[in-house]
């Protein structure tokens, strides 16, 4: 087992210790130890079936874990939830739902409005601003189903931005989106990191790992390696995670 990089707890946004998740008695991820320092941007990479999405969902308490502990900002995740935003791989929603783009983004403000609080002009402006940061301000009045897949992905990221979370967790934010969307998303994520926020994303495109992320977590049911991209994202470790050596684009 690889030791987690030793980082003082106070600087850790998310700490996963001994996390094991099973579906039907088969462990999907086993004994995961990982530390995600504040203000960093980590890519979780690994082959299909490595348990990347499962790791995220279990860390957020969306699927039950068999064993292990997850703490965010030093607290149990359930308590720290108001500081965490999550963007699923592709939102499983009814695309015919009577909701406009701006209504969806405003849902990200629920913790501020609560059950009865008024959607004030300031909050409305904040929602519009989140859309604008992803270049979607012009689409505010569209029905959510009337957008392309990439545009929908940007709206769901805008909803997460509206939460003003300190930890942003994304499951394959770039899967199946066009180049314009990809560059809009990465710009926003880098801006978040610059503000001191923490970003964790499952990522598939090995060619862009070094450009986009400063840290990587290589996963194949167990943690293969974890650390800064420059030292950890190496041909040998990636090959170990993917089980082959045809990875010539990656530095040795």
């Amino acid at each position: 087992m690889v030791d987690p990089t030793p980082i003082p707890v106070a600087e850790t946004a998310l700490a996963v210790t001994g996390l094991t998740v099973s579906y039907a008695a088969l462990p999907v991820v086993e004994g995961i130890n990982a530390r995600f320092p504040k203000g960093t941007m980590t890519a979780i990479i690994g082959p299909n079936g490595a348990g990347k999405s499962t790791l995220l969902k279990a860390a957020l308490g969306l699927v039950p874990a068999v064993a292990g502990e997850v703490r965010a900002f030093g607290q149990p995740v359930a308590k720290a939830m108001p500081r965490i935003a999550y963007v699923p791989q592709r939102a499983a929603v009814d695309w015919e739902f009577p909701a406009r783009v701006i209504d969806v983004v405003q849902m990200g403000l629920y913790r501020k409005t609560g059950l009865l609080g008024r959607m004030t002009p300031a909050l409305k402006a904040q929602a519009v601003d989140c859309l604008a940061r992803l270049g979607m301000a012009d689409f505010a009045q569209r029905q959510i189903g009337a957008l392309s897949g990439g545009q929908q992905q940007r709206v769901f990221l805008a909803r997460a931005l509206a939460q003003e979370a300190d930890l942003m967790i994304l499951d394959e934010p770039f899967a199946g989106v066009d180049a314009a969307t990809e560059s809009a998303i990465i710009t926003v994520l880098h801006a978040l990191r610059a503000e001191g926020k923490t970003v964790i994303a499952v990522h598939h495109d090995l060619a862009t790992v070094s450009a986009y992320f400063d840290r990587v977590l290589l996963l194949n049911r167990r943690v293969i390696a974890e650390g800064p991209t420059t030292t950890t994202f190496r041909r040998a470790t990636v090959a170990e995670a993917y089980g082959n050596t045809l990875l010539t684009s990656i530095p040795a």
Binding site: I84, Y86, A92, F97, V104, Y110, L116, R159
Partner: peptide, 22 residues
């Protein structure tokens, strides 16, 4: 009238509604 917001969010995206504390 009181519950409309929570009901709408639950109907649209229950997973996200849970993350938002509903």
């Amino acid at each position: 009238l009181i519950l409309r917001r929570a009901l709408a969010m639950t109907a649209f995206d229950p997973g996200h509604a849970r993350l938002m504390g509903i």
